[in-house]
Design a protein around this nucleic acid. Structure first.
Lengths: 169, 169
DNA sequence: GTTGAGGTAGAGGGTTTACTCTACACGGTC
DNA sequence: GACCGTGTAGAGTAAACCCTCTACCTCAAC
């Protein structure tokens, strides 16, 4: 099942949510059409499964084993987000992409919101300032969207702004 | 032609880039299929026309008649972006949505880049600090993406961060 | 009144799509 | 050996899609 979800995630990340046909998804998942439909009974479910998998991988990669110190932790989070962008999401956040492809789908929107809320909460906790979750959302969302436009300059600026967040308090 | 582009923009903004069929787009454009194909000879072109129109409207709404003073101008830009989100783009930036729907399309990517570059440049100019374009990109992109998640709290935080941008220089 | 450019309405073709269903292979348990 | 759950391979269906094309209308210019 995780193998299927991983394949689906890879396919959607590469080709977007609209283009790939179910047969393409089947190839990416590496199973037969029947098995694919057994675990994800519709294309919609395939999107959902891919995003669930994405969420777990993202949280794991960005927030595992952070330093205790708030400054170092925040800096590490920013670096890891940049690494994630470079390696996995050069086209932007997959959750926003999924919602953009199907703006009417309330279930997807809920998934996006849960994902972003958990990211913000964990980042604020790592920083040691749970009250700064909105500012952190802006910085991380801004970094994610700007990375493909500005490259590593976005990382430098994001760190600068994160620093300014703590100091003048 | 602008009427067609306006209708297309509205349709894509409402239903995303994948879902609406050409017949739906025809209804939104308010012309016959033949005329629609005359001005936009393929579905791809329809997307393009919609985004061009979107770009002009966005620039106009966010950057027209800004105050001279850098502080006030920047604050006004942030407010207007929030107004734009509330009125037109509750599902996020349309350019990112278009690219996400067709990540392979280089032409769309170029359009996105031009749009964002012009926004950042104008914002930096309005602020009176052309060297802060990357930071402004992060704030505006962050605000745009966070608005649907955090609502007006995102506006408050964005202004706070914009202020911090200038003061400790 | 005629002409010609540019519009509408909508049927049709050929392709692609999401999904179902049949036929068959394998591997562990009685 | 018989059986059953779980897998693969892939043909088949009904609908939807993008785009083209024919037939007709409108209206301004001369």
């Amino acid at each position: 099942m995780t193998k299927i979800a991983a394949g689906l995630e890879r396919a959607f990340a590469q080709k977007g949510f609209a283009a790939p046909s179910v047969e393409t998804l089947r190839d990416a998942a590496g199973v037969s059409l029947r098995t694919l439909y057994k675990y994800t009974p519709s294309r919609e479910e395939m999107v959902h499964a891919a995003l669930e998998h994405r969420h777990r991988r993202y949280i794991e990669q960005v927030f595992h084993d952070l330093p205790e110190d708030g400054d170092l932790a925040l800096s590490a989070v920013i670096d890891r987000v940049a690494t994630w962008m470079a390696r996995e999401a050069s086209h932007g956040c997959l959750f926003h992409a999924a919602v953009a492809a199907a703006p009417q789908d309330r279930r997807l929107r809920a998934l996006l919101k849960r994902h972003k809320a958990e990211v913000a909460e964990r980042a604020a906790a790592a920083m040691g300032r749970p009250d700064h979750d909105v500012e952190l959302t802006i910085i991380l969302e801004g970094l994610t969207q700007s990375w493909s436009l500005c490259g590593d300059a976005a990382v430098v600026s994001a760190k600068k702004m994160a620093k300014a967040l703590r100091e003048p308090a």
